[in-house]
Design a protein around this nucleic acid. Structure first.
Length: 115
DNA sequence: GCGTTGACTATTG
DNA sequence: TCAATAGCCAACG
């Protein structure tokens, strides 16, 4: 199945992108959190990954997809093998620290729509 | 409307 | 911590 283009509007995707854009630098959000904001339920986390998969991820950065991690604060197996490395590098560049196991403390870097 | 797929999450061993 | 299983939701053909 080929995911739709990120330019397609009138879809839950746009709402997901909007939620991801709200994530400030130096913070990370979980798929469940984005799902809760976009769909209203954290059960649609899979759809969030689906939406992010449609992102171009090229030069321009319409959505900070790298700020989205799984519930364990770990970088999920991305579609590209190099994406995980880039994602961690980008997060570290923003101030997010990773543990030896490649996990980040969601209690400190985890973001919520608090402000 | 159905079957398949997916960057998920929680539970069990 | 890792591997396997079950449940969940949305989109595509």
């Amino acid at each position: 199945m080929a995911p739709p283009a990120a330019t397609s509007a009138d879809h839950l995707f746009e709402r997901i992108y909007a939620a991801v854009r709200r994530i400030p630098a130096g913070r990370v959000a979980t798929y469940g959190g984005i799902s809760a904001i976009a769909t209203g339920t954290p059960r649609a986390a899979r759809t969030v990954g689906w939406a992010l998969n449609a992102l171009p991820g090229s030069e321009a950065a319409p959505v900070p997809w790298w700020r989205v991690v799984n519930s364990q604060g770990r970088i999920s197996n991305t579609a590209s093998p190099t994406a995980a490395v880039d994602q961690r590098a980008l997060l570290e560049a923003e101030g997010v620290e990773f543990g030896l196991d490649g996990r980040t403390d969601l209690d400190r870097f985890g973001w919520s729509e608090e402000g």
